[in-house]
Write a protein that binds this DNA or RNA. Structure first.
Length: 201
DNA sequence: CAATAGATCATCT
DNA sequence: GATGATCTATTGC
């Protein structure tokens, strides 16, 4: 890799080696950066959901280790990407120490760099807050695919960085969306009042 | 504005 | 062979 200065502010593995709900809340306000052809496509995380592995019937990792879920049982700070409904990718970040399963689903981003390229990836988005306000939307906007499965998010083209500004915001909590098990667990977290959150804000 | 149907395929049984 | 951690367009109040 050629980047050096570009890696400043990247969150270390230790950031992810903690209880999943703690990491989920801490990820709000952080910035996901995907470098494509020398251009940076970046967005601030404004909505996430925690999936607790073996304790959580709604989590993919609940069924145990399979070719798909094994990355969640490995070391933290890696990407878990999967295809849902045959056409949309979802991006998760692996949490908990090596050997324990857990991940955080990234549900919405507020675009901060490379916005024109993101818009080009999402021709159907009519307004800025339509570009990445949903798990399937953001992966398409910044170009995440199954090729990113298992990628180390502390180095390489896809990274997560500290937020540049010391932004203060309130964290909202709600049940997770689109699942059929553990429907009442309050594991969805979002930046209150932010227009880029998937459900109204 | 709310409800619903259709698109489409990797993964697991 | 069934099933989704979704999005969009369309229909119907």
């Amino acid at each position: 890799m050629v980047e050096t200065a570009a890696q400043i502010g990247v969150l270390p593995h230790g950031f992810y080696s903690r209880p999943t709900t703690e990491v989920a809340r801490a990820l709000l306000g952080k910035v996901i950066v995907h470098q494509v052809d020398g251009e940076e496509l970046a967005g601030k995380i404004v909505e996430v959901e925690a999936y607790l592995g073996l304790k959580d019937e709604a989590a993919h990792a609940f069924v145990g280790i399979t070719p798909r879920t094994k990355v969640m049982f490995g070391p933290p700070g890696h990407a878990y990407v999967y295809l849902i409904y045959g056409m949309y990718h979802c991006l998760n970040l692996v949490t908990e120490p090596d050997g324990e399963a857990g991940c955080v689903l990234i549900r919405a981003l507020e675009p901060v760099a490379g916005i024109e390229a993101m818009q080009a990836h999402r021709p159907k988005a009519r307004r800025p807050h339509d570009i990445a306000s949903g798990p399937g939307k953001l992966t398409r906007a910044i170009g995440i695919t199954l090729a990113h499965y298992g990628a180390d998010v502390t180095r390489g083209a896809l990274t997560v960085r500290e937020d540049a500004g010391a932004s203060l915001f309130e964290i909202g909590t709600s049940p997770r969306i689109g699942i059929k098990k553990c429907v009442d667990w309050p594991l969805r977290f979002f930046v209150k009042g932010n227009a880029h959150v998937s459900k109204g804000g």
